[in-house]
C-alpha cells in the first residue's frame, strides 16, 4: 500500500470517516502487529498494544504531518512507543529468552520484497556496520531490549555495548545522509 493511499485513508479518518479507518486498519494492521509481536513476544500483549495504538491513531489522525515521515512510519512509531511503555511498566519479558539460533528465527521473518527504496539504503548502511554493532542495534530495536538486557545477550561489558550502539548509530546516520 503506497503512501498516497494511506494518506488518503488517514486524512479521511481525521474527518471522522469510519470506513476509511477500517480500510486503514486492514491495510496496515498486519505490518504493525508484526512490529508489536516482535517486541513483546506474547500475542495477547502485542494485541493489546495494537489496539491502543489504533485508538490513538484515530484520535491523533489530524496531527500527522509529512515532516513526521511517511504515514506508515508515523503509525509504526505510535506502536513502538506504546510497546516500549508496555515493556517498561509491566516488566514483561519474552517467555522464551533469545538464545543461540535466534538469528535463524529472525531471518525467517525477513521479507525481502519490501517495497521501500529507503529500505535498500538502510540495508546497505546496516550492512556496513560491524557485525557486533549491527547485532546490538537489532536486539535493541526489534526486541525492545535496554542496554543492560543487550549486555545479558551478548555477554560483554555495559560500556562496550553502549559505545557500540552509539557509534553504530552515528555511522548509520552518516551513511544514510550521504
Amino acid at each position: 500500500m503506497d503512501q498516497d493511499t494511506l494518506l488518503n485513508l488517514l486524512s479521511a479518518s481525521a474527518d471522522g470517516d469510519k470506513q476509511a479507518f477500517a480500510d486503514l486498519y486492514q491495510s496496515t494492521s498486519g505490518q504493525l502487529f508484526a512490529v508489536s509481536l516482535k517486541m513483546l513476544g506474547r500475542r495477547e500483549l502485542a494485541e493489546e498494544v495494537l489496539q491502543e495504538a489504533y485508538v490513538k491513531i484515530w484520535h491523533n489522525a489530524t496531527e500527522y504531518q509529512h515532516g513526521k515521515g511517511s504515514v506508515l512510519t508515523w503509525m509504526i512509531s505510535i506502536v513502538r512507543y506504546r510497546a516500549l511503555d508496555m515493556l517498561r511498566y509491566q516488566k514483561v519479558r519474552k517467555e522464551d529468552p533469545l538464545e543461540d539460533g535466534q538469528e535463524a528465527i529472525f531471518e525467517e521473518h525477513i521479507n525481502d520484497d519490501g517495497p521501500q527504496v529507503h529500505k535498500n539504503k538502510l540495508d546497505q548502511c546496516m550492512g556496513e556496520l560491524e557485525p557486533q554493532q549491527k547485532q546490538a542495534i537489532h536486539l535493541a530495536y526489534y526486541n525492545g531490549l535496554s542496554h543492560h538486557e543487550v549486555v545479558g545477550h551478548l555477554d560483554l561489558p555495559l560500556g562496550t555495548i553502549k559505545s557500540w550502539i552509539r557509534r553504530g548509530l552515528q555511522q548509520l546516520q552518516r551513511c544514510l545522509s550521504l
Partner: peptide, 20 residues
C-alpha cells in the same frame, strides 16, 4: 524514526486476531 522504522518493513506482516 524514518531512518530506523525502515527496518520494520522487513518484517513479514502477521494478521492479528479479529477481536482486535
Amino acid at each position: 524514526e524514518q531512518h530506523l522504522h525502515g527496518m520494520n518493513q522487513l518484517l513479514t506482516p502477521i494478521t492479528p486476531d479479529e477481536r482486535v
